[in-house]
Design a protein around this nucleic acid. Sequence first.
DNA 1: CTGGGGACGGGGCCC
DNA 2: GGGGCCCCGTCCCCA
Length: 260
Amino acid sequence: MPRSFLVKKYFAKQKPNYSELECQNDTSLERFPLAELPSGDNTSSLGTCFTTGIVWDLSVLPTLYLPTSQTGPSTTPVPLDLSSPSSLSSSASSCGEEDEGRTSDPPSPEPVHTYAPRQRMKCTGSMAHISPPEEEEERETQVSAARPAFLCKHCPKEYNSLGALKMHIRSHTLPCVCTTCGKAFSRPWLLRGHIRTHTGERPFSCPHCNRAFADRSNLRAHLQTHAEVKKYQCGICSRTFSRMSLLQKHSSSGCCSTTV
DNA sequence: CTGGGGACGGGGCCC
DNA sequence: GGGGCCCCGTCCCCA
């Protein structure tokens, strides 16, 4: 089953910086030193911390994930009220990994970037363009405005640059093949990550419990488990969850006997 | 049922 | 323009 995603993102370009997720098991970096090391530039450029201040409200999810008809611009997730220092204190310290070796500053009142999930287009199998009407219109006008369209011959997807198309085509051709198991990937770094499943390398360590992960995203998710105030909040009972999937399960299982 | 870890995909950005 | 990497996110599985 392809794990492709449906919607294309369009949210503020301001990126939270996760490059603080340290690679601590340096010995494991011998094979892929560049790939795994956080860039020093990133650390110097950060002003943000791990996403502590961003909390999702499931009540907005339906609009975010439904096809165009029900989408609306007012889908800004509701940030949890973090103004209370007490509620932040523990999570601040626990999520202060960005400060590791740098400062002990609390995660600063989060850069309140309105935070909408990426929206993506599925590109394999039958394709579903999920985009709000505005974007739909915009896209059409752009296409009609003589911008060349580069079409994927493997799927209906189209791009406005050849580079983007070439990048996309790799997801069809899967040129990076694992010599151990033969599994193929679209990009070298995906293969490198996969190879770690064979080698057991876990370059990403949790600063709180010293648990190590092979995948930075998994460390990021793990860090949520240390946070007292988690990222995804039920709009009904205000309970917070470390993952959206948990929040969705929580909601679908009938939180407060309300169907969202 | 819930929470969490493992594996992975894709777009976007930066160099 | 291309490659590498980051970030966000999902699915699956297990305790």
